[in-house]
């Protein structure tokens, strides 16, 4: 019994175990998979802007060709 208690105590002393129990993170949100909704939204907006920048780049290239 005493050995078991020491064992449990040592586990609790382990900084990693202790941290994960006390510090609140968005674990529920992750387990529900809602984080993927966020990732999807951010990626759609970013790729939209990136595509827009590429189109702008092409337009400027065309203007440069016309000027030469």
């Amino acid at each position: 019994m005493k050995k078991l208690l020491t064992f449990i105590w040592l586990i609790l002393l382990n900084p990693k175990v202790g941290f994960s129990q006390t510090v609140e993170m968005a674990d529920t949100m992750r387990s529900e998979g809602k984080i993927y909704v966020l990732v999807a939204i951010i990626l759609v907006i970013f790729s939209g802007l990136a595509l827009y920048l590429f189109r702008l780049d092409q337009k400027i290239s065309r203007l440069e060709k016309g000027q030469e």
């Binding site: 006390t22 510090v23 990626l43 970013f46 790729s47």
Partner: peptide
């Protein structure tokens, strides 16, 4: 673009240290 797509994905999904206050 590839690096930033990776940042937006891995930045939200990968494990980070559990620190109080910043969470």
């Amino acid at each position: 673009i590839l690096l930033l797509v990776y940042t937006c994905t891995a930045g939200l999904l990968m494990e980070v240290p559990r620190l109080s206050i910043v969470n």
